[in-house]
Design a protein around this nucleic acid. Sequence first.
DNA 1: TAAATGTCATAACATGGGTTTTGTCGGCTC
DNA 2: GAGCCGACAAAACCCATGTTATGACATTTA
Lengths: 244, 244
Amino acid sequence: MDISTVTEKVLRKFESRMAMGADDRAQIAALPFKVRTIDASTYMLREGQRPTRCAFILEGLAYRQKLTPNGEREIVSILMPGEFVDLQNLFLDESDHDIQALTRLTLAEVPIAALRLFIEACPAAGQALWIDALVESSIHREWLLNVGRRNARSRLAHLLCEFSVRFQKSTLADAMAYELPMTQEQLGDALGLTPVHVNRVLKSLETDGLIARKKRQVSVIDWPRLRDAAEFNERYLHLGQIRR
Amino acid sequence: MDISTVTEKVLRKFESRMAMGADDRAQIAALPFKVRTIDASTYMLREGQRPTRCAFILEGLAYRQKLTPNGEREIVSILMPGEFVDLQNLFLDESDHDIQALTRLTLAEVPIAALRLFIEACPAAGQALWIDALVESSIHREWLLNVGRRNARSRLAHLLCEFSVRFQKSTLADAMAYELPMTQEQLGDALGLTPVHVNRVLKSLETDGLIARKKRQVSVIDWPRLRDAAEFNERYLHLGQIRR
DNA sequence: TAAATGTCATAACATGGGTTTTGTCGGCTC
DNA sequence: GAGCCGACAAAACCCATGTTATGACATTTA
């Protein structure tokens, strides 16, 4: 991917949160991004490591996971194009979780030191990153409510709603039918369910006419009923959050 | 509480994350904190509200909760003395959750606008707050693993371990026996369990000799076994995290 | 002092989701 | 084109946890 395209995407990311001045733009353009492509399921970072670069997703999906000592996995975030994947590592020395590519992934990477200097020089950009970090925290809280207090059907429906909305924001595509590149096992790991039960619930959502499936293509057939089943309210995504 | 005591506590908070220069200290001392005391279970903030002040906990505990439309509750964080309770509201306009006093609470409140100016004037302090926000996010992730993938016994043991370590850090008290001012219902809400099951599991942890209870006083009797039952590893708390 | 309320304890019963297993299908490799 | 593998599917069984209920205290309020 062309470096000017990269700059433009990063700039759009910042501007979605905060108005950028001419000087800010120039500094963004000057950031030493390196584009890299990695295969699905490649580890980008492992728990305990200390990373030196920070990645911005240009294309593809990634996820954060945590593992139990005996190997059980919980997927705690899904990361989409237009998001920085390791803001943590801007200020924390040691990663507390793994980051892994969900699909083939195109990244723009920048040294953490450079990003830190950039933030200091450019407070508006720093605030934009603050907002992103706070929104991810908010998503964590909603997922806690989801896993802790909703039954399997609501949980899955909620995840599908969230994906729909976030895909729309991320790719500007039609969000009512989207490719969901996750296995049922991965869905289970994101929801605290077994793959067998994910299978049962997907089937039930389909026979009830809320969604349709073809391979991993998920289509929302009846958004109002899916939203109701999920108790979905997009407030926690802070979609319109922008400072001026 | 004396205003100089307040300043000192706030300063200690910042210095635990980042070395502060003389100028930084002066600016901290100049922050217009107002001390206020509120009763247990008072709401400090409700979902959807836009707050104007940011509170620092001097004494007591608070929690964040989210509610399902039909009234089910999940407690998503416990907040301890020495923590800012609404960093979110520094940069997000609308709260995505409620914040409520768990015990009687002494707070030092400062207008958000003042805190924002302070951060701009004093980047070291800004970084300290970044670290705090990232650590809270990390705790959210660990709780997701806890609720999503551990059984009731491990979950509860994990919470008890976390409290022990965080109390120690927060109050510098002996952490092997502490007052846990939560009802069994609140524990259940923090763990995605029913109060009845919390009762069962507490009893079992007690008869197995891992903990002892007297009223709400919890004593850790056998830390190694409790830690093992919880699969507790304090890495996610980033306790030693400090920038120089 | 009585009544009301909140918390804990415990029992009996119900069930959502886990576990285990077995099969099918499509894609990939040699 | 045979063999292998990963993902999906679905049945049978079962257990960890939820549900409902009831009593015992302790604390607050009238």
